[in-house]
Amino acid sequence: MISSSEEDFELELRSLPGVLNVGISHAENGIVDAVTLFVRDQDPDAVRDVAMHVASLYYPDVTVTVEDANRAPSVHGRDGPRVALTWTGFNEKEGVSEVHLSFLGQLGTGMSGSGPLIGGAEATVAALRDLGYEIPCYLMAVNNVHTSTGWPVIVTFRSLADGSDRIGIAQADGELESAAKATLDALNRYLSVQTHLEP
């Protein structure tokens, strides 16, 4: 075949659906003897089956282990420090939406020239960036919908990496605050991961 290097082997494993990381162990003679795949949002058994086919083409005796990220014990914990929404405001005179966030005593401020709905989401993203976060998504849509109990806001982000959508929903006092909370809801998973890693 046209390629059989260990690098291509790893690339092929990383191409399997849901694979986030690949660990490779070598025997004393330098041959790959064990592979661990860390997968998310996929059936680990199905991934293992395919991975074993792939592995057998390169290294017939390799053992394949699949770890499920969805079942992995969270290193973050639900009680850890969280980004908190501290203030929202809309300056009607200048048409500016403003959001304040805090994390471990640090304040992040974001502003947007859009109205309260879209501006609430945009300003929240800006405030997160002000706190030092990288947001690997772009804002797709902000909508509010009429329900029997009010007008919740739905915010949709699209991942820059894999095109998947992150959706958050919230209902608070006013569109701006709802949009800000919905934005945090949509990005919460990413924030909670990063908050643990940031010193």
Binding site: R14, S15, L20, N21, V22, G23, I24, S25, T36, L37, F38, E67, A69, A72, S74, V75, H76, Y133, E134, P136, S159, L160, A161, D162, R189, Y190, V193, Q194, L197
Partner: peptide
């Protein structure tokens, strides 16, 4: 991140791929 592979983690200690692989932000 890669368009076709999605987010990918690479860890120096290749025997420990799990815990910190939960990181899904580039960096």
């Amino acid at each position: 991140g890669d368009d076709s592979l999605g987010m990918q983690s690479f860890r120096l200690d290749r025997k420990k791929v799990s815990s910190d692989s939960l990181v899904t932000v580039p960096g």
